[in-house]
Design a protein around this nucleic acid. Structure first.
Length: 157
DNA sequence: GCCAACGTTGGC
DNA sequence: GCCAACGTTGGC
């Protein structure tokens, strides 16, 4: 059982978009970074939990959580020339990019802002607070999972 | 296989 | 919108 953090721009796809999907489930498509893909392909398992993080907004921060409900499978948007995520090097035989399905689980009453994460000494090693951290999917420790929930004022599931 | 040039991310 | 940090590309 592992924990993760998923970044998304709320103007493009925020936690409310996910919550509005049928069953609160959607595919996490469009990942075009090998390290992030490898986390999904190699390490994510059904039942893993993840924070939903809003980036490129004011303020950025953690707004809720999801659960992995389907393990990695090919990201078909890479094959679609009309998609913003099209990758001309992807083929049906070698799709290059993978996605998982996530289900909406929690929406915090208030965002836990990045500034608060940075100010919490116990989160000093959390990947998302590191300088220059751009990775859109990062691992989270069980302890970080608990601390952020405490900051959000809810018990960790 | 090095590394300069280029493209992208994302906080500010 | 700026720009630092980082990842990828491709010539050599």
């Amino acid at each position: 059982m592992r924990y993760w953090l998923f970044k998304s721009e709320p103007d493009v796809f925020g936690i409310d978009h996910l919550a509005a999907m049928p069953g609160g489930v959607d595919s996490w498509d469009g990942i075009r970074n090998y390290q992030a893909r490898n986390f999904m392909r190699d390490d994510m398992r059904t039942g893993d939990r993840g924070f939903f993080y809003h980036s490129r907004c004011d303020p950025p921060g953690i707004v809720g959580s999801v659960e992995i409900v389907r393990e990695a499978y090919p990201d078909h948007t890479a094959l679609d020339p009309k998609s913003a995520y099209h990758d001309p090097k992807a083929t049906a035989d070698d799709p290059r990019w993978m996605m998982v399905d996530v289900a909406f689980r929690e929406r915090f009453d208030e965002i836990v802002p990045l500034a608060a994460l940075k100010a919490e000494k116990r989160l000093a090693d959390m990947v998302v607070v590191q300088k220059g951290s751009r990775l859109s999917i990062t691992p989270v420790t069980a302890n970080e999972w608990k601390i952020v929930h405490a900051m959000a004022g809810v018990p960790a599931p």
